[in-house]
Write a protein that binds this DNA or RNA. Structure first.
Length: 600
DNA sequence: GCAAGGTC
């Protein structure tokens, strides 16, 4: 008997379906000589410090450097503290029984570093010795699955990938556990002061932005505005220059005459391509902007929709689909032909050539972009419906044509030079789907401009001196923080580190929402209206760690570079030694620095 | 009491 193990039930069932296996059992499916089972993500994790004899929280234990890491069944929090997750225990028992009976195992966990780790941790924990092969596919269409099974890889091909995954896991444990205890103990804080490779740079970003915003000194500047009249249609023009002093602006204002000469008129069409399909992060950002949902709420609503088979896999980091999935898109779009809001646009799309901007198999990683499945939704809550509409509306947008705008710039002479600009949508294209108001217009922009010609002289009906102030960068909210986490590392000077981080950023799509919740739970940050601001505790921690590597995105870049080398066959023990050295250093530094910490 | 990673 061959046993196929997937990362999650949905994938296990999908593969079983392709094989025509139909006998559903508790925790697996049988048929056609195969058994299909699954994990629920990571069933096993690196064991807690006490499993290595480090009891209690004690400076004497630090740094904790286990000789050999152990695995433990995933825990859940109950009122009696941490206990083994019974569902996980049960599934692990099922997997053990199946592995014991197996002649061969086929590994169908997600095609990536963590997918490899999920399987290997199970395999080694169960002390399994059966041979295994690897299924490596990036979409779960019938064709992709069949093709993948014709091209199974030897399991050992992925040994170095497992090494890199295991190193990632151990390193996060070593640095996180030790740094957390070191700072919590030395600061004599009442609560836990947690630190980690991802959470601490995130906290640092929030704190740095908050301080920059709070300490910003606004600069006053001046502009001169006028209103011109073209056959009764008024429009606004602003001085070409900004002025540092009121006097300079006043002088320009005084020179404005009763009429202005149209010096030039420039009208250019601009094509605006449709947005890409959603990945989790872009959807979380949009839901935060449109509905004020937190990243965590959006993920949980999307998970509900996924479990009801209404949308595809939610925790994806790709905004693209492959050609195989694209082949199914026309039929999917047609399902929305009678939708109350999008029906007209869906029908229209059915008659036109689809935009293939979101189609690129090379940019599909473990999972493709989020799409509706085409199943008809029933009894959705208002919030679920809102998320579902964002997913399906985005699909219609993504395959729509460009939006064509006309950007007009007019220069007016009256004493000095003035500019008027306006944007008119000529062909809405994808913008017809939601028919939203255009993104926030600059206040000097006119909604529409009258037709004027060069050389014309128009009466000036009003003029004024405007006093304005420069504005600081805004505080982070969930949407802008998620964006910043995705792009973290883009400004690293070191070319190699920047390169190593360019596809990842800080954290992963699956973990970012939970990480924001962790910072809130630790009382490091708080929600203030839609903004995320640091608390006094958060700022105190930031002050202590801000100059250390643990507070910088570069640390992730440096690790990613080394992990990629390990995947390519480089020495594991060398990296492990570096991490141990770093762990000793950061622990020692924090044991000292924490003593100086001011906690209110 | 602690990380980051995955998912019901």
């Amino acid at each position: 008997m061959k046993v196929i193990i997937a990362e999650k039930p949905s994938v296990g069932r999908e593969i079983a379906k392709v094989f025509g296996a139909t006998t559903k059992k508790d925790g697996y499916i049988e048929g056609k000589g195969y058994t299909f089972t699954w994990a629920f993500g990571h069933l096993l994790q690196l064991a807690a410090p006490q499993e290595y004899g480090y009891y209690g929280w004690n400076v004497q234990n630090l740094p904790m450097l286990p000789k050999k890491f152990k695995l433990a069944i995933r825990k859940i929090k109950t009122k009696n503290g941490l206990v083994e997750d019974p569902g996980v225990r049960k599934q692990l028992d099922i997997i053990k029984t199946l592995f014991d009976e197996a002649t061969e195992i086929i590994v169908a966990t997600d095609a990536g570093r963590e997918g490899e780790l999920i399987f290997r941790y199970i395999y080694y924990y169960l002390k399994c010795k059966k041979p295994f092969k690897r299924l490596w596919i990036s979409s779960q269409t019938d064709a992709a699955i069949k093709d993948g099974f014709r091209n199974l890889k030897p399991g050992t091909d992925y040994d170095t990938l497992f090494n890199s995954a295991h190193c990632r896991s151990q390193s996060d444990w070593l640095v996180g556990m030790n740094a957390t205890q070191a700072l919590s103990l030395s600061s004599r804080s009442r609560g836990v002061l947690s630190l980690g490779r991802v959470q601490t740079p995130t906290l640092a970003m929030i704190c740095a932005r908050y301080l920059e915003n709070k300490n910003f000194i606004p600069q006053t500047y001046y502009q001169v505005a006028m209103q011109l009249d073209k056959d009764g249609q008024l429009f606004k023009a602003i001085s070409e220059k900004n002025f540092k002093t009121r006097e300079e602006a006043q002088a320009v204002l005084d020179l404005v005459e009763a009429a202005g000469l149209i010096e030039s008129v420039e009208a250019k069409p601009r094509k605006e391509p449709p947005p890409l399909l959603h990945d989790l992060s872009s959807l979380q950002q949009e839901a935060n902007k449109r509905k004020g949902f937190t990243a965590d709420q959006t993920l949980s609503l999307l998970q509900n929709l996924y479990e009801s088979k209404l949308v595809t896999y939610p925790r994806t980091g790709s905004r693209y689909i492959g050609d195989d999935v694209f082949a199914e898109v026309p039929a999917l779009i047609a399902k929305f032909n009678h939708h109350t809001e999008f029906g007209k646009q869906a029908t229209l799309l059915g008659e036109t050539k689809l935009n293939k901007r979101s189609v690129n198999a090379k940019k599909v990683t473990d999972h493709h972009a989020i799409l509706p499945t085409g199943e008809t939704p029933r009894n959705l809550s208002a919030d679920q419906q809102a998320i579902y509409d964002m997913v399906s509306g985005r699909m219609l947008e993504a395959f729509h044509g460009d939006c064509i705008k006309e950007i007009t710039k007019i220069t007016v002479l009256s004493g000095s030079k003035f500019m008027a600009s306006g944007t008119v949508i000529q062909t809405p294209g994808w913008r017809a789907v939601f028919n939203d108001k255009d993104e926030e217009k600059k206040d000097e922009e006119n909604a529409t401009l009258p037709k004027v010609t060069q050389g014309e002289i128009l009466p000036i009906v009003d003029k004024a001196l405007l006093e304005k102030q420069t504005k600081p960068k805004p505080l982070y909210n969930e949407a802008s923080l998620l964006k910043a986490l995705e792009t973290a590392g883009k400004e690293i000077d070191d070319e190699e580190l920047r390169q190593a981080m360019k596809d990842s950023g800080l954290g992963t799509p699956a973990t970012r929402a939970a990480m924001i919740e962790t910072l809130l739970k630790r009382n490091y940050i708080a929600r203030e209206k839609k903004n995320l601001v640091p608390t006094s505790t958060g700022l105190s921690v930031y002050e202590v760690v801000k100059t250390h590597r643990i507070a910088q995105a570069e640390l992730t870049g440096a690790w990613e570079k080394r992990l990629e080398e390990i995947r390519g066959g480089a020495s594991v023990s060398e990296f492990q030694e570096e991490i141990k050295t770093y762990t000793r250093d950061i622990t020692r530094e924090l044991l000292l620095a924490g003593k100086e910490m001011v906690l209110s």
